[in-house]
Structures are given as C-alpha cells and as structure tokens.
Design a protein around this nucleic acid. Structure first.
Length: 971
RNA sequence: GCCGGGAUGGUGGAACUGGUAGACACGCAGGACUUAAAAUCCUGUGACCCUUAAAGUCGUGCGGGUUCGAUUCCCGCUCCUGGUACCA
C-alpha cells in the first residue's frame, strides 16, 4: 500500500483490536491504574451525530496516552437503556421496548466501533439487563435498610437503629428523619404493632414512602417531574396536570446534604459545576422563630435568615398547601380561603415560581403575635410561600424583602422600616437587603446587619423564642415512576407493610405485559402483569426513575460479570475512583448529584473505598448544528446566491428616483422566469409624499448540509434531493451558488445533522478524530462545520508520504538523526505532552501539523525520529499510526509501546534572539548568548547601531532585560 | 433577578505565569508541474498609507485606569451565550 488508504487501514486495525481484545483491562495488574470514563449514552433511535463523539474522542486520547505511559487503563462503555422514548414507542406500536432498545444499541455500537475507540467491550453494561438491575435493586434494598446517623455523620443499618430504639426509644437518637416524627420511649417501642413499627422506621429509612405533592397527569397515568409540566399541562401531549398528594417512594438524599457540599472541596471539577451543585444544595444559616396564634392553641414556626429584622415583621404568610390552614381560618373567611387555595393548588410549583411578577394572597382572619414586641399581626396565605422549603411559613418584613414589599403594597399591609443608611431604600434600584444599620428595632438599634443577626439569634435562643437553624434548599428525591420501562422496585406488601424481597431472589425481573399503558383503574402498567406477586403477596407496581441505573454504573464496569456482588471487593479496591470523567454540563444537578449520593452511601456501608466517585471531571461543550440555507425567489424554483439575496432583499427601489434599478432587477427576474416576485410596499415620507418600494420576495429554506461543501451548493445533488426541486435554476455569484448559514441545534428537521459515519466513509476515522479535536477547545460550545476538515486529511496524507516516495517505495532509513530533526521531534513531544495534561487537544493537533511540515521540508525519513513521532501521535490517530508502526517492523500493537521522553539537550540553543523594544515599541533584534549576564546585554544593546538610531542621543532612564523574552529600553 | 462562560483577520481558532498579537487550519489570490483536470508543491494574505520598496500609523466588543509594556490585571458599560429561579 503506497497511498494512504484509510478504509483498508481502519478496517484492518479495528478487526485486529477486536479479535485480540487489545484494550481489555486487567483486574490483576501490577501497573498503576487509570480509570477514564465517558458518560454512557441513552441509545436513541436517531443514532449518533457528529457531536456525540466529541467527549469520547477526548477520553479515548487520554486512555491511549495513559496506556503508553505505562498505566493499566480501564476505559469502558455501556448504555443507559431504560427510558421514556422506547416506552412511548412501545405504547404506540406494541413492540416491546427491549427490542427497540437492542436495535438502537446495535447501531450505536457499530457507529462507535467505526471511530476506533479503545473501549474494553468485554465490560459493556446495559442498565436494562436483569444481571445489571439486579444490583440496582440490591442498592435500593441497602438504602431501605439504612438510616443516617447525624452523630457519627454516617449512614448505618436499620438493624442498629432498632437496637437503639429498644434501649432508649428515639429521643436520644440523632438521625435524619421526617419532620413529623413523634418521640417515643423504649417501652412504647416495645408495645408498638408491626404496622406502627414499620411506619416509624419509614420515617428514618433512606428510601421511604411518604405522602408528597406531585404533578399527577391523569391522561398519561403518571407522576411528572416539575420540568415536564409547562403552563399546567404536560410537556408531551398537552394533557392537564394536577397537584396531588400521593404516596411515593422517596430517597432521603437530604441526609447527605452537608457531606455532598463539603465533598465538593475535595474533587477536581470545573468550578462552575461545583457552584451549580452548591447552589442546588442551597445551604443557608438562620433561625426558627415561633409565632403564637392569637386565641388558638397553635404556634407557627417560621424559618428566617434575617432574625435581625423581626421588629419589622408586619404580617406572617403561610403556604397554600399548609396542613393547618383550615384550623387557622376564621369562619367569615372560610369561603374566600377555600377559593384561593383551590386556585393556587392547580398551579404547579414550577409554574408558580416562574410567574414571579404577580403575587396573590388571602387573609385568614387569624392573628399571630410577634415574639419580639408582642404586636398582633395578620396571618395571610400567600402563594409565593413554598410548602416544601423551610417550615412553609414566612415572617414578612416588607421593608427588607422585595416580595414582602410587593405583597404588602398590593394588600395595603403596614410597612415598618428597620434599616437606615445608603442602599436601604427598597423602592430604589440599588437596594441591598443587608446594607445599613438597624433602627426601630429595640435592642438591635445602631448595629450593622451582620452583628444584629448574631445578637438577635442569641436573644431568640435565650428567650426560648426559637433556635438557630441551618436550612438546605435541596429536597428529597421522588424515586418512583408509574411506568413500565424501568427497574421494578423490589418491594412487596404484606398486610400493608412494605418489605424488600430476599436478596437471593434478585433480580426481580420486569414481567411481560400485553400493553404498555396504565390499567383501566389507573394503576401503573405493571398492574397489567399476571401473577405479579412475591410469595403470594402483591409487588410494588412503580418502577425506578431514569437516574437509578446511571447512579452506580461506573462501579459495575470494575467487575461487570460478577454474579455474587455488584463488583468484587478486590476490583472495587483496585480501581477505587474514576480518575477522569468526561461528559456534558447538563448533568450537574441530576446524574452527577445522585451518583455522588449513592457512592457516598455505599462508602459509609463499607462497599466502596472512596466517598467521591469522580476524582476529576471535564465538561465537553455541545457541538451545535450549522444549518445551510438557499434563497428562493417568491414561490418559483429559482434560487439566488447568498450575497445577491442579501443585496436584493435590502435593495429597496424607488420608482421615481431609481428607474434604472427597477428595470434592471425586473429584467433579471423576467429572464429567470420569476416575475411576480416583487413585493410592493408604500412608505410615507416626512414631507407627506408616498414612496413606493419594491422588494423581491426571498424565502430562506433549510437545505441538507451534506450537499453543501464550503458553503457552495452541489447543484446536481440539490436537484436530486427533493423531486419538487428537479427543475431548479440558480442565480450565481462569481459563477457559484453560495449558501447562507446559521447556528442551531442539530436536528433532523433542520437538515443539519452530520453523521460520523459519513465523515468516516469520506475521510476516515483518524481524520474525524483529529478534526473534532482541532475544531476548538473541548469545553467550548461550537457549531459543527466541515469546512476545515481537508486540512487534517492533508496532514495525514503528508505523514504517510514521509514513509513512501511518489513511486510508492518505502524510503525509511536507519541513518542517525540530525540535530535539527531531533530538535523538531523533542519540541513536539514536549508540547503534546503538556497539551494532553491540560486537555488542550486542539493545540496539539496544530503542533503535529507543524512537526510534519518541518520534517517533510527537511525530507526526513529517519526511522528513529518517525518511530517516536508515531507513538506520540497514536492516541489521536490510532489507525494510521498502527499501520505505520507495523511498517517500521514492529509486530506488537503500538498501545504496548513506551511513550518517548522529550530531552532538553536536543532543544537548547546557544543563542537567543532578543527583540529590543524602545518605549514599548519593537525596534530591533539582536542575538545574545543564552548565558550572557543582563548587565552585558544592556551594554551591548546601547552600543548597537540600530538601537542608537532610535535613542537619538538620549540616555535611557531604565533598561529592562527579561531573560529569554525581551529587552525594553525606557527613555 | 441571581450565578457562570464568552467577544481576537473573510472563517475556525492560537498566544500556558503581563513581554514580537493573529500560531495552525480553512478560504482567497498568484505561481510551478500537467495536453487538461485532480492531486501535490511554492509564494502572498489584519487594516490603513502606497506605483513599488522601505518606513510608518491603527488594530484583540466599547469607555477609562495601572504599567516601560495589557488580548492578559483593575473600574465602568454593550452585546451574545449557558444555567437557575418567589429558597424567606
């Protein structure tokens, strides 16, 4: 093979890698380990587009790089194969989602293999396979039998909690539990019924059943997440959604809030990503404060971060969902309150939150007492108060909080100013709630806000009005979906008490059902299964949410075939933590959060060796589509080239003054059979006269980007693209038809999807890999644009030609490398190594290009030089380098080679050319030996003729010599 | 509203800690080879000034500042983009 034949080369090596299992990771290696992980994909029906592999290519480069650096690398791939699209397809067609899923995965694997990734396919996992979800269910069971001990700050087994209850009840137990948990003694515990014990324990378990507000969609028969509800109807199908209190399986993730927050400081993640998680956890310090309700035996507790403003409280507001509302409403307000509450309930929480501009509320008729000054103030229901945060009750300080201010103004409630000084006026733009000093606030008067907060909290605790409290925004996660295509919850009910199924009976497999819809009685689809029971008892009909399987898959890769444990202790200990995780930033508060939670739990229980699953994280930016447009004249099949279209559509012609213009245009339009495409508009001028404007009607149409090359339209392909375009005519500019472009999301309907398969067929996988890296920084969002791909392709052919001459003869020599060649090589090794370490893949591609250009202009065909260059290049372009490696006489895969070390000795120069700047402007260049002292350089610079010219006889004030950089003369 | 990221030639982008802005690539222009085309190779390519050359001037979104020197640091804006949202 004397010409670079990427097809032959790539097929050959992909087959060899597969047959030899070249990239199989060893669990019993003595080498240091490196775990490089990609976020596994959901296999959608559309296949991969060119944006998907971006992160995979980067991690593959690192995996291959680490291999030749001597690491035992775990680089696996799998599929997050439970999910909604396959289920919806099943509902429509009756085809089992497993079939659809398998078809999609097969296609994904074919596509991935074509790009030449060094995955260890023997470790492939699918979350929808029973031997995988066996262990998802097992983790669920561990969580069910777990509780969180706040004393030791660790999760523990429920067995140990029961022992504590038996000894001293729950009053001494510090645990993460439901708010409404009642205090009981050991004696009381002993005499509880089985059901009572179960209910009590559920308040402590890390997976538990609770009544919570959910978005229920009757038409779809399932609970929806907040983001799936838009304007009160479901995102898919537009069915009405109601707020409903339902029994749901939950995960007590809030128990881990503090540790999930603290853990962020120990991991190497992008700072914005950590910030998102911090914000999501939403830790805030403040206090609980009790407000007694007048004439009722009720005390309302509020949470506030601003106890210092308590003297400014003029009313208290309560969430519409609050349980005590009916008790708190006086008879004369009953009707108004009921109307208001029903109204508010029908707006989903997100809906209410996004509609920030309007506030609404209703007086309950009740009054509460401000503990600080004994004042009687009104109790309102307000829809800006969220039931799920804090206590669901808020003390309102209209002078210091913008929402309270808006509400108070709207309902004519009093306002007491408690802060004075600059920026304390709430009606002004520059209002800062924490500015100024306290006034009208009794013992707090004159203090700045931070001190006032401290003093007020102390006061509250001393007087017994309440206590200091840390509050988190994060809430427990709902862990059940009323759907078919997910992991069945391994739970059955015996006399109304939930039990987990025995571990040896796992996995609890998804049953076959005839249809994938909810049952007629509104039960989840699993209600259709026949004999869906365990030991004769009914099983839970909900399945796990989409994030369950993806929350631990990185552990399964460590030992995917294990049937006795999710992964052997030895494997878990060896692989320990994911060293590098590459994936999109969109998972910040979902997958990445839940994975940390589950891993932390498993760590507490002694199943894994590190509390944080992902040591280092890199977010790759999304690759957007770059749509191409053609410009159609009116409703004809005449298309105008981009710049003509631009000109014409802004080219308004005035009949009076522009006779020539309109004739010219009309003639053109007529010539192309496109008359009647002029739009006539009338515009009134300042002087009252009417101006007639003609504009050609130009319609921009999306055109398939695959028939546009460097923005030039392939006209023949265009005519064949759609039958109605067969008779198209083109109005050219410079003899070509140029298309317009715009950056949009990649999607079928915009005809801007580019498949990696097409690129591989046309240019090869190595070109695709290098080009995707060359496109720009990994983290950056960027549009896909095939325009520059030729450059990378040319580079690979140029590399090939270092080995063969024009006659197809191998021209490698064993000569000793010249110093110049060595210098080029070692410069390249150094630069590429630095680039990989800081993930600047785009610059290393440039470095390779420079290197090959320089070597080829030196006509270098030295075996030693090329050998090392090929090793360094191999992570980027694995196929061509394997082929060339073999040509150099090696019989083993390049992945077993050793990464060459760059040597300073080949790169040092004896002289350095200093640019000389005078008052900041570059004026001359002079060579000096590297070891010349600064004082000597100064002298020689002043003596230099070229410099003298610029000095004009003046003596410089100062000379700055920056070693190996610059000499600056200041006049 | 709040929290991020960004703005550099015709285009994608480089410049790592302040030190020759525009590496590398695309595109474009010209040339070589060829009967021709493709492929390949060579040269030029920020703008202005200019017959040419030399030299010069201006240039990293806008306005200021610090510095001998700023794409880089500081202050104030504009626009684009991502996330998030009544969290008390």
């Amino acid at each position: 093979m004397s010409e670079y034949n990427f097809k032959e080369t790539e097929n050959k090596w992909q087959k060899i890698w597969k047959d030899n299992q070249t990239f199989k990771a060893d669990n019993n290696s003595t080498k240091p380990k490196y775990y490089a992980l990609d976020m596994f994909p959901y296999p959608s029906g559309a296949g991969l587009h060119v944006g998907h592999p971006l992160g995979y290519i980067a991690s593959d480069i690192i995996a291959r790089y680490k291999r030749i650096k001597g690491y035992n690398v775990l680089h696996p791939m799998g599929f997050d194969s439970f999910g909604l699209p396959a289920e919806q397809y099943a509902v429509q067609t009756g085809q089992h989602p497993a079939i659809t899923t398998e078809q999609n995965i097969t296609r994904y694997i074919q596509q991935l293999e074509k790009i030449g990734f060094s995955y260890d396919w023997s470790r492939e996992v699918w979350t929808s396979k029973p031997d995988y979800y066996h262990w998802t269910q097992w983790i669920f069971i561990q969580l069910f039998h777990g509780w969180y001990n706040k004393e030791t700050n660790k999760a523990d087994t429920i067995h140990n909690l029961i022992k504590l209850f038996e000894v001293s009840g729950n009053s001494t137990v510090k645990a993460a539990c439901d708010e409404d948990t009642k205090v009981f003694t050991a004696e009381e515990w002993k005499f509880m019924s089985e059901k009572e014990k179960s209910d009590t324990l559920l308040k402590y378990r890390l997976t538990y059943i609770a009544n919570t507000m959910v978005n229920w969609c009757p038409a779809l028969g399932t609970v929806l997440a907040n983001e799936e509800v838009v304007n009160g109807v479901s995102e898919r199908g537009g069915h009405p959604v109601e707020r409903k209190k339902m029994q749901q399986w939950m995960m007590r993730i809030t128990a881990f809030a503090e540790r999930l927050l603290q853990g962020l400081d120990t991991i190497d993640w992008p700072e914005p990503m950590k910030d998102m998680q911090r914000y999501w956890i939403g830790k805030s310090f403040g206090a609980e404060l009790n407000f007694k309700v007048v004439d009722k035996d009720i005390t309302l507790t509020v949470f506030t971060t601003r106890v210092d403003t308590t003297f400014g409280v003029t009313y208290v507001s309560i969430a519409p969902e609050h349980e005590l509302i009916s008790e708190l409403t006086t008879p004369e307000y009953k009707e108004a309150v009921t109307t208001f509450v029903t109204q508010a309930k029908n707006r989903s929480e997100r809906d209410r939150m996004s509609d920030v501009k309007t506030v609404s509320g209703q007086f309950t008729g009740s009054y509460v007492v401000n503990p600080f000054n004994g004042e009687k103030i009104q109790l309102w229901i307000a829809d800006y108060v969220l039931a799920g945060y804090g206590t669901g009750v808020v003390m309102a300080v209209p002078s210091s909080d913008e929402r309270d201010f808006k509400f108070a103004t709207q309902y004519n409630l009093p306002i007491i100013t408690v802060q004075e000084g600059p920026k304390t006026d709430i009606t002004k733009e520059d209002f800062d709630p924490k500015a100024g000093t306290m006034i009208n606030s009794g013992f707090l008067n004159g203090l700045a806000v931070p001190e006032a907060i401290q003093k007020a909290i102390k006061f509250v605790e001393e007087k017994g009005f309440g206590k200091a409290r840390t509050q988190y925004k994060m809430r427990d996660a709902i862990f059940a979906r009323q759907r078919y295509w997910g992991e069945p919850l391994p739970v059955y009910y015996k006399e109304g008490i939930p039990h987990t199924i025995v571990e040896k009976d796992l996995p609890l497999e998804l049953p076959q059902i005839d249809e994938y819809k909810p049952t007629a009685t509104g039960e989840p689809p699993l209600g259709r299964a026949k004999n869906y029971t365990y030991k004769g008892y009914p099983l839970e009909l909900s399945t796990m949410p989409g994030w369950a399987g993806s929350s631990w898959y990185f552990l399964r890769y460590m030992d995917p075939k294990n049937i006795t444990r999710f992964a052997s202790e030895k494997a878990v200990k060896y692989w320990n933590q994911v060293d590098l995780y590459i994936g999109g930033a969109e998972h910040a508060t979902g997958h990445l959060f839940y994975s940390r939670f589950w891993n932390m739990f498993l760590y507490d229980m002694g199943y894994v060796t590190h509390p944080e699953p992902f040591k280092k994280l890199i977010n790759q930016g999304m690759i957007q589509g770059r749509s191409s447009f053609v410009y159609r004249l009116g409703n004809t099949n005449h298309f105008i080239s981009l710049n003509l279209a631009k000109k014409w559509s802004t080219y308004t012609l005035n009949e009076e003054t522009d006779k020539f213009g309109i004739e010219e245009l009309d003639e053109l339009l007529f010539k192309f059979g496109a008359s009647n495409t002029l739009e006539v508009k009338y515009k009134e001028e300042n002087d009252g006269s009417i101006k007639i404007i003609y504009t050609p009607k130009i319609i921009a149409l999306h055109v398939d980007v695959n028939i546009v090359h460097n923005d030039e339209l392939d006209e023949d392909a265009f005519k064949k693209w759609r039958t109605d375009l067969a008779d198209s005519k083109f109005i050219h500019e410079d003899g070509k038809y140029i298309c317009g472009s715009e950056v949009e999301k990649m999607s079928k309907s915009k005809y801007n999807v580019v498949s990696p398969d097409d690129i591989c067929d046309k240019y090869g996988a190595d070109t695709l890999r290098m080009y995707e890296m060359f496109l720009g920084p990994l983290e950056q969002f960027k549009p896909w644009n095939t325009n520059g791909i030729e450059g990378v392709y040319k580079f690979l052919r140029k590399l090939w030609r270092l080995f063969y001459n024009e006659d197809g003869k191998l021209i490698i020599t064993d000569n000793a490398p010249t110093p110049e060649e060595l210098k080029i090589l070692h410069k390249t090794i150094k630069k590429v190594e630095e680039d990989i370490e800081r993930h600047s893949f785009n610059t290393s591609v440039s470095t390779f290009m420079v290197c090959v250009n320089e070597l080829s202009s030196l006509k270098c065909n030295n075996k030693k030089i090329l050998e090392e260059l090929i090793i360094v290049l191999s992570p980027y372009a694995p196929h061509i380098t394997e082929e060339l490696w073999e040509l150099l006489g090696h019989t083993e895969s390049i992945s077993l080679a050793t990464y060459p070390q760059w040597k300073q000795e080949y790169m040092t120069e004896s002289e350095f050319e200093y640019p000389i700047s005078i008052n900041g402007k570059m004026r001359a260049k002079i060579n000096f030996p590297l070891d010349m002292p600064a004082a000597d350089i100064e002298k020689q610079v002043l003596a230099n003729e070229a410099v003298q010219k610029w000095l004009e006889g003046k003596a410089p004030k100062k000379i700055i010599v920056v070693p190996n950089r610059i000499v600056n003369v200041v006049l």
